[in-house]
Nucleic acid binder design. Structure first.
Lengths: 297, 297
DNA sequence: CCACAGGATGAAATGATTTTTCTGGTTTAA
DNA sequence: TTAAACCAGAAAAATCATTTCATCCTGTGG
């Protein structure tokens, strides 16, 4: 009972609809009608009064209230407010395409919102267990190499950057030959992070195979159900449904970057205070490369 | 009058609080009390009834209603719902710091949310006019070069990538010497995009100076009020307030990437159908580098 | 300096909507 | 088959938002 209460609380702020779904089977029959309608068209509920919803779901008004109470809310109003917040947080950021009539401000908004939408999706789809394993592997690694081509190449470089700062011996290779050469020289305590938006890049598959043969652990930032996902020791699934359209921005590389952030944060956390000292010193030394606030002459 | 109505409509779905702010001076004195309280602590309003808010703001209940109407809402309820949606969309994603007691799932959530929060901020702070000018400059450019160091280096590389696809002659330099050499060889129709998280990197300032002397147009993705911002022809301000803490992820580079996406989208839009053909062919040719769905042997 | 017009404000009445109570019906288990 | 528990809705009650209207300012012209 306590556990379920905690869980409720956890879900509360995350995903109301998921919570409704989860409670479906502990609801009474007619309350379930309400739940089903809400799941069907949550947005429309916002404009409704209690009696509207009751009528639409074909139940009486007290039933709707009992439904709200069953989910832990004070009443209908309080439920509606939560719903509004939830819809506000996830409803707005949708796939889109830019049309010619859009102003630059529109384009700006759409690109940002699409990116945010992707991030929200990826965030909720993330598998904490896979992350945990990956963080453990990275923390214990003797050496970490990041492989990627094209847009994922710059993700790899960025990742190298991040892990450098954590005093992890890191490299990023975006050239297939070098990748292969490096892969065959890996040892057991080494970790490879393979980054791919398609999950099917031939050269990368080959690098991963070589790395595994050499005994290294391979973490993959790849879409689910792809050849690369099947090949990695520790696949981290990053699924960004991208409409295949020239005017759709590619936000999957951004999702990848954020996942790298999560991994880096995890590694940093699991490391010693010694590292934190190091990071402070690093920040200080970077400052000498900067000009101060005076207008340059 | 029509214009203002349009503008209202525009702001409606974007940022309720900003809308309240904008209407401040056309409100009556006591209505303004309501507005001020709401701006002060919007979240608390959600739990309040009409009479609570009236009492807290030290006005009568009809006044609160008149305030809501003045903003174009049906009444108090409808205002509260909008507010809930707005707070849901931007309120949740706040700065944070990871603590030792956090689970990996928590870390994941926090890192994503912080990133999303930054993006929302940057999105709303973006100056469409600056963007428009930058897009115009890029569209007309003979050659585009991206300069950046460190984390901004990988942003530069990513940008080059993106613009390559648009058949723009693009280069990315992350080495100061090469930057300088390239900068002095630029011509008038060339464009440099200088990317910096700090806005004060000495070497980058120098490169920008050289590029300007050579006659090139310099676009800057830089924080406001920094030496680099002052130096660029077309500064695009990207302000990510980052708490200076080792365990805070650096999300400004992600904001930069999204801004690059916006620029690329803008350039793509303003270009010919010929380009769109090109992009389709490009996608097809990339496909040959990929394995198909069969499990690799 | 006063009187008056006009708008701004709040008290109280009104009306809408939510919530509670209670009763009739239905299932379940002995 | 019957009692017990449970479920659902009608109607009453309570709550809360909205409207009406009277009052109070504020500023202006006499």
């Amino acid at each position: 009972m306590i556990f379920s209460a905690l869980e409720d609380n956890f879900l509360d702020n995350i995903n109301l609809l998921r919570k409704v779904q989860a409670h479906l089977d502990e609801l009474r029959k007619s309350e379930r009608k309400v739940a089903n309608y809400i799941l069907l068209d949550p947005a429309s509920v916002l404009q409704m009064r209690l009696s509207d919803l009751a009528h639409t779901a074909d139940v009486s008004e007290p039933t709707v209230i009992r439904f709200c109470r069953a989910l832990g809310f004070d009443g209908f109003q309080s439920f509606k407010l939560q719903l509004a917040q939830y819809l506000g947080s996830s409803g707005n950021y949708v796939q889109f395409s830019v049309s010619d009539s859009d102003s630059v401000a529109d384009v700006n908004r759409k690109v940002f919102d699409a990116t945010i939408g992707s991030l929200l999706n990826v965030r909720d789809e993330m598998d904490p267990v896979a992350l945990e394993k990956a963080i453990a592997a990275l923390s214990g690694a003797r050496r970490v190499e990041f492989y990627g081509f094209g847009a994922s190449g710059s993700v790899a470089i960025d990742a190298q950057h991040k892990f450098f700062r954590l005093q992890v011996s890191a490299a990023a290779y975006t050239d297939p030959h070098i990748q292969h050469m490096s892969a065959i020289s890996l040892k057991e305590k080494d970790v490879v992070v393979a980054i791919s938006q398609s999950g099917r890049t031939k050269a990368l598959i080959q690098s991963v195979n070589l790395a595994r043969e050499a005994g290294a652990t391979v973490i993959g930032l790849v879409p689910r159900n792809t050849p690369l996902a099947a090949l990695c020791d520790l696949p981290i699934h990053v699924n960004v449904e991208e409409v295949e359209h020239v005017f759709t921005p590619v936000s999957s590389r951004i999702a990848h970057l954020v996942v790298i952030d999560v991994l880096a944060m995890g590694v940093a956390r699991s490391s010693s205070e010694h590292l934190q000292d190091h990071l402070k010193r690093l920040n200080r030394s970077l400052r000498t490369l900067r000009a101060n606030n005076k207008k340059p002459t």
